[in-house]
């Protein structure tokens, strides 16, 4: 394994981690504040990607497509919140799981009906389409760097929002002491709507940003959703910092594991079995990581304070 390949894969891992963070952030916010387990979070990411493809076809501008897709995703998310989710907050987790599972089934199919089952593409904005030489012998796609940068900016923004603003304070308090917050006379319903809408936009944003380097297809949100679950379980449910750290960790471990597992195994076994076993081990790496973390810290790496 060459050094440049290692750097490239590390950057890819970061980019994947940042993407996971964008999705996990909304999920952990919604769960932390509302105690609501939303399986449909992944289809909101998918929807973001599809909407961007559609608006790009209409406007021909990536920036416009991004903005319109975010607005449309938000509107749709709020519509869902209003018609369905709102009635689920005080239900038990099993009921939340089933209802949101129903929404996944519906939306995956609806997307197929509206846009077809074939994968779609969103072109990278022309100005950012090329590659850049990071060091001699190392060229890297600009767009991936843009994803990393935008994810980090969002993370910073979230940090400031949560630690500096009134809504952020309520969110932090809500994650640990939901009852007290509602006892303080805060309009919980409005707070929930803001948090939910925000989470939806983050997921949609992730979908739009990743669309140019991934095929946009029905069901694309499902596997990402489960990875986001792994992220927030490792990070500690309700903890934004935990989600950020765990997302980068998972992104790096998964990407590097898939790229180098066969090479690593070849150090200790002949090439042929290494090629067979390698992918299997690589694919279970993050789950083993999760198992280890939970075995020693059942509440995750950064448990939100006050939650046991």
């Amino acid at each position: 394994m060459s050094f440049t390949l290692f750097i490239v894969q590390t950057l890819n891992g970061l980019q994947f981690g940042v993407l996971l963070f964008l999705i996990a952030a909304g999920l952990t916010l919604v769960f932390g504040v509302m105690d609501f387990i939303n399986l449909a979070h992944g289809v909101q990411y998918m929807l973001g990607a599809y909407l961007a493809v559609m608006f790009y076809a209409l406007t021909g501008s990536f920036v416009l497509a991004l903005i319109l897709a975010l607005i449309a995703a938000l509107a749709f998310g709020l519509l869902l919140e209003f018609t369905v989710f709102r009635h689920l907050y005080d239900r038990d987790h099993l009921e939340q799981v089933i209802a949101t599972f129903g929404i996944i089934i519906f939306l995956n199919q609806a997307v197929k009906v509206v846009w077809g089952a074939a994968p779609l593409n969103l072109p990278i904005p022309e100005a950012l389409a090329g590659t850049v030489q990071l060091m001699p012998g190392l060229v890297y796609p600009v767009w991936r760097l843009v994803i990393i940068a935008s994810g980090l900016i969002v993370a910073l923004m979230l940090y400031l929002l949560v630690s500096r603003t009134r809504v952020g304070m309520l969110v932090r308090a809500g994650a640990t002491h939901a009852r007290i917050v509602s006892a303080l006379g805060v309009d919980i319903r409005r707070l929930f709507m803001i948090v939910f809408g925000f989470g939806t936009m983050l997921a949609a944003f992730a979908g739009v940003m990743i669309a140019p380097i991934l095929s946009v297809e029905p069901g694309m949100g499902d596997s990402v959703l489960i990875l986001a679950f792994v992220v927030i379980v490792i990070g500690g449910i309700g903890s934004m910092r935990g989600a950020f750290m765990a997302a980068l960790l998972i992104g790096l471990v998964d990407t590097l594991g898939r790229s180098f597992m066969i090479d690593i195994l070849r150090l200790v076994m002949p090439p042929s079995p290494a090629r067979t076993v390698g992918p299997a081990i690589a694919s279970m790496l993050i789950y083993v990581l999760m198992a280890l973390v939970l075995y020693f810290r059942p509440a995750g790496l950064f448990p939100a304070k006050g939650r046991s």
Binding site: H93, F229, V230, S283, Y287, L294, Y295, A299
Partner: peptide, 24 residues
């Protein structure tokens, strides 16, 4: 070792692990 929503998510994750191993 966990309970509630953690349990849901972790069983989901282990299920997915088995799925990916089979695929590989």
């Amino acid at each position: 070792r966990t309970s509630g929503v953690y349990f849901i998510m972790i069983t989901l994750a282990f299920g997915q692990m088995a799925y990916f191993i089979a695929g590989s």
